[in-house]
Amino acid sequence: MWGGVMSDKRPPFPPFTTETARQKVRAAEDAWNGWDPERVSLAYTEDSEWRNRDTFLRGRAEIVEFLRGKWEREQDYRLRKELWAFTDNRIAVRFEYEWHNHEDQWFRSYGNETWEFDENGLMRRRYASINDLPISADERRLVL
């Protein structure tokens, strides 16, 4: 959504600079921390390809369904992303996020993602590798 209107373009556009790559990373972090699967899905191409841990997805409808389930399981989700590297139309990030399950066990999840964008600034590929570490509530660093 840009200016209240759905768009098939998401600036900044490739080729990326350090500044525009950081803008993409920040926009992704902000969107994911909003827990709105429909909003998040609009940053991806209609046929976007994902690997998230051991789950493989294709397209916005599958992304929305996946994120709804994720945020149902991962309560009070809070994410931080950091730019790792970039090229013309690709960005690599490392991240950590914290969440708790329905039994109130907290976790910190660590991972890396590689992203590939089309000419309109939409992400056409997202590959994520993630590991979870159980933590106590007082070990949290990413407080809402």
Rank of each mutant, 00 (worst) to 15 (best):
D8Y: 12
V5D: 11
G111P: 06
D76I: 10
D8W: 10
F107L: 03
H100V: 07
D30N: 06
E29M: 11
W35Y: 12
S129R: 13
M123N: 14
E19L: 07
D8N: 15
P15V: 03
D118T: 05
P134L: 03
R51H: 00
R60M: 06
F86Q: 00
A27E: 11
T17R: 02
N89D: 12
W71A: 03
F16G: 00
Y44Q: 07
N112A: 02
P12I: 02
D76F: 13
L67M: 10
N112P: 00
G4C: 01
D76R: 14
S129K: 09
L83M: 07
E96N: 04
S129N: 12
F86I: 05
V25R: 01
M1Y: 10
T17K: 03
G34M: 05
D76Q: 15
D88S: 13
N89C: 09
S41A: 15
D104Q: 15
T114C: 00
T20G: 06
E119Q: 15
Y110R: 04
L83Q: 05
W99L: 04
H102E: 11
A43G: 08
T55P: 01
L42D: 10
N89M: 05
R78G: 06
V64L: 06
M123T: 12
V25I: 12
E116S: 11
W71Q: 01
A137T: 04
Y110K: 03
I135S: 10
A27F: 09
F95K: 01
K81M: 15
E62D: 13
R26N: 10
S109G: 10
L79H: 12
Q105N: 14
K9W: 07
A85E: 11
A31Y: 04
L133K: 11
D47S: 12
R124M: 13
G34H: 08
A27K: 08
A43S: 08
L122F: 05
E46Y: 04
A21N: 03
I91D: 04
K81V: 02
L67A: 12
W35A: 09
E119W: 14
L42S: 12
R60W: 06
N89F: 02
D47W: 07
E82N: 12
N131S: 08
D47V: 09
D30H: 09
I135Y: 15
Y110Q: 00
W84Y: 15
T55W: 06
E46K: 15
R125L: 14
H100E: 02
R94Y: 01
W35P: 01
G121V: 06
T18D: 13
G59Y: 06
G34S: 11
A137M: 05
A92I: 00
A27H: 09
A61K: 14
N89W: 05
A92L: 02
R126M: 13
T87S: 15
P15G: 03
D104K: 14
A43P: 02
E19D: 11
A21G: 04
G69N: 10
A43Y: 00
Q105P: 03
I135G: 09
E119H: 15
A128P: 04
